[in-house]
Amino acid sequence: MASPQSLTGLTGIGLLFVWCALALGPRRRPWLVGALAFGLSWLPVSGMTLAGYIRAVSSDLSVTSMALLTCAMAPQLGASSLGSRDEWRFVFRLVATGGLFLYPMVLGLGPFDPYTLGFAPTGLLALLALTAGLAWWRRYHVCLGAIVLSVLAFRLDLLESSNLWDYLLDPWLVLYAIYDLRPWRRNVQTTCEAASRPRRALRGSSA
């Protein structure tokens, strides 16, 4: 039996399976497609689940990634679109800024290691609380929900990491945020819009 932290990690990979299936699979019965894809991620191959193989390479997704993936899939599962175009851009700007601050230095660029700010993260939490307050003020509930869920998961130790950064960001999310915000892109297509037209979004075409 996997540890609770591993279950969270595998669930994140399962969500990726669902996202891919909804984007690439048949549009009819999306709940069934999603459930099958999630089940597929737990299929054992040579003693290891498919999600376990992906997780070995991808590491665990952040809770922010899981929350945003779920929001992005909502329209395909029959719910209304979550978050306006401005809100998603706000979220991706936050993610990209955090990633560009964090990753170069943790990889050894310079003596300062910003990752240490996430172990006893009073300062980081204060910054997040301000951001959450701003999101609440501007009615950015996707952003607020992602922050609150990440902080809650950190409090409950739901990932293997005990560092708040790992609950907030992962390199895949940062890469996607940078891709989504790319300045040379014309006619910006939001992630929610992309989610409702998944095949085009996965091919990277602009709306």
Partner: peptide, 25 residues
């Protein structure tokens, strides 16, 4: 809904601040 969001956020952040304060640094 906004009040619920606010109350939830405050509760979660309070719990997280408490945890952060107990980390041995």
């Amino acid at each position: 809904v906004r009040v619920v969001w606010l109350a939830l956020a405050i509760a979660v952040f309070a719990a997280a601040f408490h945890r952060a304060a107990t980390v041995r640094t």
